[in-house]
Design a protein around this nucleic acid. Structure first.
Lengths: 201, 201
DNA sequence: CATAAACCGTACCATACGGTACGGATAAGA
DNA sequence: TCTTATCCGTACCGTATGGTACGGTTTATG
Protein backbone atom coordinates (compact mmCIF):
# COMPACT_ATOMS: atom_id res chain seq x y z
CA UNK A 1 0.00 0.00 0.00
CA UNK A 2 2.97 2.27 0.40
CA UNK A 3 4.34 2.28 -3.13
CA UNK A 4 1.03 3.44 -4.58
CA UNK A 5 0.75 6.24 -2.10
CA UNK A 6 4.26 7.43 -2.79
CA UNK A 7 3.49 7.37 -6.48
CA UNK A 8 0.41 9.51 -5.92
CA UNK A 9 2.47 11.98 -3.91
CA UNK A 10 5.08 12.08 -6.64
CA UNK A 11 2.42 12.93 -9.17
CA UNK A 12 0.93 15.59 -6.91
CA UNK A 13 4.30 17.26 -6.68
CA UNK A 14 4.88 17.08 -10.40
CA UNK A 15 1.42 18.52 -11.05
CA UNK A 16 2.29 21.47 -8.88
CA UNK A 17 5.70 21.79 -10.53
CA UNK A 18 4.00 22.19 -13.91
CA UNK A 19 1.57 24.66 -12.41
CA UNK A 20 4.33 26.83 -11.02
CA UNK A 21 6.31 26.42 -14.22
CA UNK A 22 3.37 27.72 -16.23
CA UNK A 23 3.02 30.74 -13.99
CA UNK A 24 6.61 31.77 -13.46
CA UNK A 25 8.71 30.21 -16.19
CA UNK A 26 11.65 27.90 -15.61
CA UNK A 27 13.99 30.25 -13.81
CA UNK A 28 11.17 31.85 -11.89
CA UNK A 29 9.82 28.52 -10.68
CA UNK A 30 11.68 28.22 -7.40
CA UNK A 31 12.03 24.95 -5.57
CA UNK A 32 10.81 26.71 -2.44
CA UNK A 33 7.53 27.77 -4.00
CA UNK A 34 6.93 24.30 -5.40
CA UNK A 35 7.63 22.77 -2.01
CA UNK A 36 5.37 25.22 -0.20
CA UNK A 37 2.43 24.81 -2.54
CA UNK A 38 2.76 21.04 -2.35
CA UNK A 39 3.07 21.17 1.44
CA UNK A 40 6.29 19.34 0.97
CA UNK A 41 9.77 20.18 2.14
CA UNK A 42 12.63 21.24 -0.04
CA UNK A 43 14.64 18.38 1.35
CA UNK A 44 12.06 15.91 0.07
CA UNK A 45 12.17 17.46 -3.37
CA UNK A 46 15.93 17.14 -3.49
CA UNK A 47 15.82 13.63 -2.08
CA UNK A 48 13.32 12.47 -4.70
CA UNK A 49 14.38 14.35 -7.79
CA UNK A 50 18.05 15.15 -7.26
CA UNK A 51 18.02 18.78 -8.27
CA UNK A 52 15.93 21.31 -10.15
CA UNK A 53 16.72 20.06 -13.66
CA UNK A 54 16.12 16.54 -12.40
CA UNK A 55 12.64 17.44 -11.20
CA UNK A 56 11.66 18.96 -14.51
CA UNK A 57 13.25 16.15 -16.45
CA UNK A 58 10.86 13.79 -14.66
CA UNK A 59 7.99 16.15 -15.42
CA UNK A 60 8.89 16.11 -19.09
CA UNK A 61 9.14 12.35 -19.20
CA UNK A 62 5.77 11.94 -17.56
CA UNK A 63 4.21 14.36 -20.02
CA UNK A 64 5.81 12.59 -22.96
CA UNK A 65 4.37 9.27 -21.83
CA UNK A 66 0.92 10.84 -21.71
CA UNK A 67 1.36 12.31 -25.18
CA UNK A 68 2.51 9.03 -26.62
CA UNK A 69 -0.42 7.24 -25.02
CA UNK A 70 -2.87 9.75 -26.46
CA UNK A 71 -1.45 9.77 -29.97
CA UNK A 72 -0.49 6.20 -30.77
CA UNK A 73 -4.05 4.77 -30.68
CA UNK A 74 -5.23 7.37 -33.20
CA UNK A 75 -3.06 5.87 -35.87
CA UNK A 76 -4.69 2.47 -35.81
CA UNK A 77 -6.49 2.22 -39.09
CA UNK A 78 -10.09 1.46 -38.51
CA UNK A 79 -11.71 4.11 -40.69
CA UNK A 80 -10.85 6.37 -43.60
CA UNK A 81 -7.26 7.48 -43.95
CA UNK A 82 -8.32 11.10 -43.97
CA UNK A 83 -10.45 10.73 -40.86
CA UNK A 84 -7.51 9.14 -39.07
CA UNK A 85 -5.46 12.10 -40.17
CA UNK A 86 -8.04 14.48 -38.73
CA UNK A 87 -8.26 12.64 -35.43
CA UNK A 88 -4.49 12.48 -35.13
CA UNK A 89 -4.20 16.15 -35.97
CA UNK A 90 -6.80 17.09 -33.39
CA UNK A 91 -5.09 15.12 -30.67
CA UNK A 92 -1.72 16.56 -31.55
CA UNK A 93 -2.99 20.13 -31.53
CA UNK A 94 -4.74 19.63 -28.22
CA UNK A 95 -1.53 18.40 -26.65
CA UNK A 96 0.93 20.72 -28.33
CA UNK A 97 -1.04 23.89 -27.70
CA UNK A 98 -2.27 23.00 -24.23
CA UNK A 99 -1.01 24.73 -21.11
CA UNK A 100 1.26 21.92 -19.94
CA UNK A 101 3.08 21.39 -23.21
CA UNK A 102 3.50 25.12 -23.64
CA UNK A 103 5.02 25.49 -20.20
CA UNK A 104 7.33 22.54 -20.79
CA UNK A 105 8.48 23.69 -24.19
CA UNK A 106 9.12 27.15 -22.85
CA UNK A 107 11.28 25.65 -20.13
CA UNK A 108 13.30 23.54 -22.53
CA UNK A 109 13.79 26.51 -24.85
CA UNK A 110 14.77 28.80 -22.00
CA UNK A 111 17.61 26.55 -21.02
CA UNK A 112 18.59 25.45 -24.51
CA UNK A 113 21.24 28.15 -24.85
CA UNK A 114 23.31 27.00 -21.91
CA UNK A 115 22.16 23.42 -21.37
CA UNK A 116 20.20 21.28 -23.79
CA UNK A 117 19.48 18.52 -21.29
CA UNK A 118 15.77 19.29 -21.02
CA UNK A 119 15.46 19.75 -24.76
CA UNK A 120 17.14 16.41 -25.39
CA UNK A 121 14.71 14.66 -23.10
CA UNK A 122 11.78 16.46 -24.66
CA UNK A 123 12.86 15.46 -28.14
CA UNK A 124 13.75 11.86 -27.46
CA UNK A 125 10.65 11.16 -25.38
CA UNK A 126 8.36 13.27 -27.56
CA UNK A 127 8.86 13.77 -31.25
CA UNK A 128 11.23 10.88 -31.76
CA UNK A 129 8.80 8.51 -30.08
CA UNK A 130 5.71 9.48 -32.05
CA UNK A 131 6.91 10.59 -35.46
CA UNK A 132 8.02 7.11 -36.59
CA UNK A 133 4.51 5.79 -35.96
CA UNK A 134 3.07 8.54 -38.10
CA UNK A 135 5.57 7.93 -40.86
CA UNK A 136 4.73 4.24 -40.86
CA UNK A 137 1.07 5.17 -41.16
CA UNK A 138 1.84 7.26 -44.23
CA UNK A 139 3.97 4.49 -45.73
CA UNK A 140 1.09 2.09 -45.36
CA UNK A 141 -1.27 4.38 -47.20
CA UNK A 142 1.34 5.05 -49.81
CA UNK A 143 1.66 1.33 -50.57
CA UNK A 144 -2.08 0.77 -50.66
CA UNK A 145 -2.57 3.70 -53.00
CA UNK A 146 -4.52 6.14 -50.82
CA UNK A 147 -1.85 8.73 -51.36
CA UNK A 148 1.10 9.03 -53.66
CA UNK A 149 4.08 9.67 -51.45
CA UNK A 150 7.73 9.57 -52.46
CA UNK A 151 9.38 10.34 -49.16
CA UNK A 152 7.10 9.64 -46.19
CA UNK A 153 9.29 11.58 -43.78
CA UNK A 154 8.94 14.72 -45.88
CA UNK A 155 5.24 14.14 -46.27
CA UNK A 156 4.96 13.87 -42.52
CA UNK A 157 6.71 17.20 -42.14
CA UNK A 158 4.35 18.72 -44.67
CA UNK A 159 1.33 17.61 -42.73
CA UNK A 160 2.73 18.88 -39.46
CA UNK A 161 3.63 22.17 -41.07
CA UNK A 162 0.16 22.60 -42.52
CA UNK A 163 -1.41 21.55 -39.25
CA UNK A 164 0.56 23.63 -36.84
CA UNK A 165 1.77 26.50 -38.95
CA UNK A 166 3.14 29.17 -36.68
CA UNK A 167 0.51 28.70 -34.02
CA UNK A 168 2.89 26.84 -31.73
CA UNK A 169 5.44 29.63 -31.80
CA UNK A 170 2.82 32.27 -31.22
CA UNK A 171 1.48 30.19 -28.38
CA UNK A 172 4.95 29.91 -26.85
CA UNK A 173 5.34 33.64 -27.17
CA UNK A 174 2.12 34.13 -25.25
CA UNK A 175 0.44 35.83 -28.19
CA UNK A 176 -2.35 33.28 -28.57
CA UNK A 177 -4.68 31.75 -25.98
CA UNK A 178 -5.18 28.01 -25.93
CA UNK A 179 -7.48 27.18 -28.85
CA UNK A 180 -10.97 25.88 -28.30
CA UNK A 181 -12.21 22.53 -29.52
CA UNK A 182 -13.92 24.09 -32.52
CA UNK A 183 -10.76 25.78 -33.73
CA UNK A 184 -8.76 22.62 -33.24
CA UNK A 185 -11.21 20.66 -35.34
CA UNK A 186 -11.19 23.32 -38.05
CA UNK A 187 -7.41 23.36 -38.23
CA UNK A 188 -7.19 19.57 -38.34
CA UNK A 189 -9.79 19.38 -41.07
CA UNK A 190 -8.07 22.04 -43.13
CA UNK A 191 -4.68 20.42 -42.78
CA UNK A 192 -6.02 17.00 -43.73
CA UNK A 193 -7.80 18.40 -46.76
CA UNK A 194 -4.70 20.24 -47.91
CA UNK A 195 -2.62 17.16 -47.38
CA UNK A 196 -4.99 14.99 -49.38
CA UNK A 197 -4.91 17.47 -52.22
CA UNK A 198 -1.14 17.61 -52.11
CA UNK A 199 -0.68 13.86 -52.19
CA UNK A 200 -3.66 12.81 -54.29
CA UNK A 201 -2.70 10.02 -56.70
CA UNK B 1 30.23 64.13 -35.40
CA UNK B 2 29.00 63.11 -31.98
CA UNK B 3 25.61 61.66 -32.81
CA UNK B 4 27.09 59.22 -35.31
CA UNK B 5 29.71 58.05 -32.87
CA UNK B 6 27.17 57.52 -30.14
CA UNK B 7 25.05 55.53 -32.57
CA UNK B 8 28.02 53.31 -33.40
CA UNK B 9 28.66 52.73 -29.72
CA UNK B 10 25.02 51.89 -29.17
CA UNK B 11 25.21 49.30 -31.92
CA UNK B 12 28.42 47.87 -30.52
CA UNK B 13 26.76 47.37 -27.18
CA UNK B 14 23.68 45.80 -28.75
CA UNK B 15 25.87 43.47 -30.79
CA UNK B 16 27.52 42.28 -27.64
CA UNK B 17 24.17 41.99 -25.89
CA UNK B 18 22.98 39.59 -28.60
CA UNK B 19 26.24 37.70 -28.35
CA UNK B 20 25.91 37.19 -24.62
CA UNK B 21 22.23 36.42 -25.03
CA UNK B 22 23.06 33.66 -27.48
CA UNK B 23 25.62 32.14 -25.12
CA UNK B 24 23.83 32.38 -21.81
CA UNK B 25 20.14 32.83 -22.46
CA UNK B 26 18.06 35.73 -21.22
CA UNK B 27 18.33 35.18 -17.48
CA UNK B 28 21.94 34.14 -17.73
CA UNK B 29 22.91 37.22 -19.72
CA UNK B 30 23.95 39.52 -16.91
CA UNK B 31 24.23 43.24 -17.33
CA UNK B 32 27.68 43.04 -15.77
CA UNK B 33 29.00 40.63 -18.37
CA UNK B 34 27.57 42.70 -21.20
CA UNK B 35 29.14 45.83 -19.76
CA UNK B 36 32.51 44.16 -19.25
CA UNK B 37 32.71 42.68 -22.73
CA UNK B 38 31.73 45.99 -24.24
CA UNK B 39 34.24 47.84 -22.07
CA UNK B 40 31.33 49.87 -20.90
CA UNK B 41 30.07 50.56 -17.42
CA UNK B 42 26.86 49.24 -15.99
CA UNK B 43 25.83 52.77 -15.26
CA UNK B 44 26.04 53.63 -18.94
CA UNK B 45 23.91 50.63 -19.84
CA UNK B 46 21.25 51.71 -17.37
CA UNK B 47 21.49 55.32 -18.48
CA UNK B 48 21.02 54.43 -22.13
CA UNK B 49 18.57 51.57 -22.00
CA UNK B 50 16.71 51.98 -18.73
CA UNK B 51 16.86 48.45 -17.49
CA UNK B 52 17.52 44.91 -18.69
CA UNK B 53 14.21 44.41 -20.50
CA UNK B 54 14.68 47.85 -22.03
CA UNK B 55 18.05 46.89 -23.45
CA UNK B 56 16.71 43.75 -25.07
CA UNK B 57 13.63 45.52 -26.29
CA UNK B 58 15.92 47.82 -28.25
CA UNK B 59 17.85 44.81 -29.50
CA UNK B 60 14.63 43.23 -30.74
CA UNK B 61 13.51 46.41 -32.47
CA UNK B 62 16.82 46.76 -34.24
CA UNK B 63 16.67 43.16 -35.39
CA UNK B 64 13.10 43.57 -36.60
CA UNK B 65 14.10 46.56 -38.70
CA UNK B 66 16.85 44.49 -40.30
CA UNK B 67 14.42 41.66 -41.01
CA UNK B 68 11.86 43.96 -42.54
CA UNK B 69 14.55 45.59 -44.69
CA UNK B 70 15.73 42.19 -45.91
CA UNK B 71 12.30 40.78 -46.68
CA UNK B 72 10.27 43.59 -48.15
CA UNK B 73 12.36 43.99 -51.34
CA UNK B 74 11.95 40.31 -52.16
CA UNK B 75 8.27 40.77 -52.72
CA UNK B 76 8.61 43.27 -55.50
CA UNK B 77 7.41 41.44 -58.58
CA UNK B 78 10.04 41.52 -61.22
CA UNK B 79 10.19 37.84 -62.15
CA UNK B 80 8.06 34.71 -61.88
CA UNK B 81 5.69 34.43 -58.97
CA UNK B 82 7.24 31.15 -57.92
CA UNK B 83 10.77 32.48 -58.06
CA UNK B 84 9.71 35.40 -55.86
CA UNK B 85 8.26 32.84 -53.49
CA UNK B 86 11.55 30.96 -53.42
CA UNK B 87 13.61 34.08 -52.83
CA UNK B 88 11.28 35.26 -50.09
CA UNK B 89 11.34 31.83 -48.49
CA UNK B 90 15.13 31.70 -48.58
CA UNK B 91 15.46 35.11 -46.97
CA UNK B 92 12.94 34.23 -44.30
CA UNK B 93 14.62 30.97 -43.44
CA UNK B 94 18.02 32.62 -43.26
CA UNK B 95 16.72 35.17 -40.80
CA UNK B 96 14.43 32.97 -38.74
CA UNK B 97 16.94 30.17 -38.27
CA UNK B 98 20.01 32.37 -37.84
CA UNK B 99 21.79 32.73 -34.54
CA UNK B 100 20.47 36.18 -33.72
CA UNK B 101 16.81 35.43 -34.32
CA UNK B 102 17.10 32.18 -32.40
CA UNK B 103 18.63 33.94 -29.42
CA UNK B 104 15.99 36.65 -29.52
CA UNK B 105 13.07 34.28 -29.85
CA UNK B 106 14.41 32.20 -27.01
CA UNK B 107 14.56 35.28 -24.84
CA UNK B 108 11.02 36.34 -25.66
CA UNK B 109 9.73 32.83 -25.01
CA UNK B 110 11.66 32.55 -21.76
CA UNK B 111 9.94 35.59 -20.36
CA UNK B 112 6.55 35.02 -21.93
CA UNK B 113 5.18 33.19 -18.91
CA UNK B 114 5.64 36.10 -16.54
CA UNK B 115 5.94 39.10 -18.85
CA UNK B 116 5.02 39.22 -22.51
CA UNK B 117 6.63 42.60 -23.13
CA UNK B 118 9.47 41.23 -25.25
CA UNK B 119 7.11 38.92 -27.11
CA UNK B 120 4.77 41.80 -27.88
CA UNK B 121 7.60 43.84 -29.33
CA UNK B 122 8.85 40.86 -31.30
CA UNK B 123 5.43 40.25 -32.78
CA UNK B 124 4.49 43.82 -33.58
CA UNK B 125 7.84 44.70 -35.09
CA UNK B 126 8.31 41.32 -36.76
CA UNK B 127 5.48 39.19 -38.01
CA UNK B 128 2.86 41.92 -38.00
CA UNK B 129 5.12 44.16 -40.05
CA UNK B 130 6.00 41.66 -42.76
CA UNK B 131 3.04 39.33 -43.08
CA UNK B 132 0.69 41.94 -44.58
CA UNK B 133 3.16 42.53 -47.42
CA UNK B 134 3.24 38.84 -48.16
CA UNK B 135 -0.55 38.58 -48.07
CA UNK B 136 -0.83 41.47 -50.50
CA UNK B 137 1.61 39.71 -52.79
CA UNK B 138 -0.59 36.61 -52.75
CA UNK B 139 -3.71 38.70 -53.36
CA UNK B 140 -2.11 40.21 -56.42
CA UNK B 141 -1.31 36.83 -57.89
CA UNK B 142 -4.76 35.58 -57.01
CA UNK B 143 -6.35 38.41 -59.00
CA UNK B 144 -4.07 37.95 -61.96
CA UNK B 145 -4.71 34.22 -62.05
CA UNK B 146 -1.31 32.79 -61.14
CA UNK B 147 -2.87 31.00 -58.23
CA UNK B 148 -6.40 30.30 -57.14
CA UNK B 149 -6.66 31.57 -53.61
CA UNK B 150 -9.82 32.01 -51.56
CA UNK B 151 -8.39 33.36 -48.35
CA UNK B 152 -4.95 34.87 -48.83
CA UNK B 153 -4.23 34.95 -45.11
CA UNK B 154 -4.75 31.20 -44.85
CA UNK B 155 -2.70 30.63 -47.98
CA UNK B 156 0.09 32.65 -46.41
CA UNK B 157 -0.04 30.47 -43.31
CA UNK B 158 0.08 27.39 -45.52
CA UNK B 159 3.22 28.57 -47.23
CA UNK B 160 4.91 29.45 -43.99
CA UNK B 161 3.93 26.11 -42.52
CA UNK B 162 5.31 24.21 -45.49
CA UNK B 163 8.43 26.34 -45.49
CA UNK B 164 9.31 26.24 -41.85
CA UNK B 165 7.69 23.06 -40.62
CA UNK B 166 9.02 22.28 -37.21
CA UNK B 167 12.55 23.37 -37.97
CA UNK B 168 12.16 26.61 -36.04
CA UNK B 169 11.05 24.84 -32.88
CA UNK B 170 13.82 22.31 -33.17
CA UNK B 171 16.25 25.14 -33.72
CA UNK B 172 14.99 26.93 -30.62
CA UNK B 173 15.37 23.72 -28.66
CA UNK B 174 18.98 23.51 -29.75
CA UNK B 175 18.40 20.26 -31.60
CA UNK B 176 19.39 21.57 -35.01
CA UNK B 177 22.41 23.59 -36.13
CA UNK B 178 21.90 26.64 -38.30
CA UNK B 179 21.16 25.35 -41.81
CA UNK B 180 23.58 25.91 -44.65
CA UNK B 181 22.75 27.82 -47.79
CA UNK B 182 22.11 24.62 -49.74
CA UNK B 183 19.57 23.34 -47.29
CA UNK B 184 17.84 26.69 -47.17
CA UNK B 185 17.52 26.72 -50.93
CA UNK B 186 16.20 23.18 -50.96
CA UNK B 187 13.57 23.93 -48.35
CA UNK B 188 12.46 27.10 -50.11
CA UNK B 189 12.19 25.28 -53.43
CA UNK B 190 10.22 22.45 -51.93
CA UNK B 191 7.83 24.77 -50.14
CA UNK B 192 7.26 26.86 -53.25
CA UNK B 193 6.61 23.76 -55.34
CA UNK B 194 4.16 22.38 -52.82
CA UNK B 195 2.44 25.73 -52.58
CA UNK B 196 2.08 25.98 -56.35
CA UNK B 197 0.58 22.53 -56.50
CA UNK B 198 -1.81 23.35 -53.70
CA UNK B 199 -3.03 26.58 -55.26
CA UNK B 200 -2.80 25.71 -58.94
CA UNK B 201 -5.78 27.10 -60.84
C1' DC C 1 44.45 75.63 -23.05
C1' DA C 2 40.66 75.47 -19.79
C1' DT C 3 36.18 73.92 -18.55
C1' DA C 4 32.39 70.87 -18.46
C1' DA C 5 30.17 66.83 -19.68
C1' DA C 6 30.24 61.97 -20.54
C1' DC C 7 31.89 57.63 -19.43
C1' DC C 8 34.72 53.85 -17.28
C1' DG C 9 35.92 50.94 -13.26
C1' DT C 10 34.82 49.68 -8.83
C1' DA C 11 32.52 49.30 -4.79
C1' DC C 12 28.16 48.70 -2.66
C1' DC C 13 23.32 47.16 -1.32
C1' DA C 14 19.29 44.44 -1.07
C1' DT C 15 17.30 40.44 -2.63
C1' DA C 16 16.55 35.86 -4.14
C1' DC C 17 17.77 31.34 -5.16
C1' DG C 18 19.83 26.50 -5.06
C1' DG C 19 21.20 23.36 -2.03
C1' DT C 20 22.15 21.37 2.88
C1' DA C 21 21.36 20.49 7.83
C1' DC C 22 18.52 19.56 11.75
C1' DG C 23 14.76 19.12 15.23
C1' DG C 24 10.11 17.80 15.74
C1' DA C 25 5.87 15.63 14.14
C1' DT C 26 3.70 11.73 11.92
C1' DA C 27 2.62 7.45 10.28
C1' DA C 28 3.85 2.58 9.42
C1' DG C 29 5.18 -1.83 11.34
C1' DA C 30 6.06 -5.19 15.13
C1' DT D 1 1.81 0.36 22.53
C1' DC D 2 6.56 1.03 21.32
C1' DT D 3 10.00 1.72 17.75
C1' DT D 4 11.76 3.34 13.60
C1' DA D 5 11.89 5.47 9.28
C1' DT D 6 9.88 9.14 6.63
C1' DC D 7 8.66 13.69 5.89
C1' DC D 8 7.52 18.59 7.13
C1' DG D 9 8.94 23.32 8.56
C1' DT D 10 12.55 26.29 9.33
C1' DA D 11 16.87 28.05 9.57
C1' DC D 12 21.19 28.57 7.33
C1' DC D 13 25.08 29.31 3.82
C1' DG D 14 27.32 30.74 -0.33
C1' DT D 15 26.66 32.84 -4.50
C1' DA D 16 24.94 35.68 -8.13
C1' DT D 17 22.16 39.40 -9.91
C1' DG D 18 19.76 43.94 -10.84
C1' DG D 19 20.26 48.35 -9.84
C1' DT D 20 22.68 52.66 -7.63
C1' DA D 21 26.50 55.72 -6.11
C1' DC D 22 30.90 57.84 -6.73
C1' DG D 23 35.76 59.12 -7.76
C1' DG D 24 38.89 59.42 -11.55
C1' DT D 25 39.78 59.80 -16.40
C1' DT D 26 38.92 60.63 -21.04
C1' DT D 27 36.74 63.39 -24.64
C1' DA D 28 34.25 67.14 -26.65
C1' DT D 29 33.56 72.20 -26.58
C1' DG D 30 34.54 77.16 -26.09
Amino acid sequence: MKAASRERRRNEIMDIAVEVLAERGYRGASMLEIANRASASKETLYAWFGDKPGLFEQVIRRNARAVQAALAPRLENDTTAESVLVAFGQALLRLLLGEDAVAINRAAISEAASDSRLAQVLASAGREATLPDFIRFLEGHSRNGTWQIDTPSEAAEDFLGLLIGDSQIRRLLGLLPAPGEAEILARANRAAARFSRLYAP
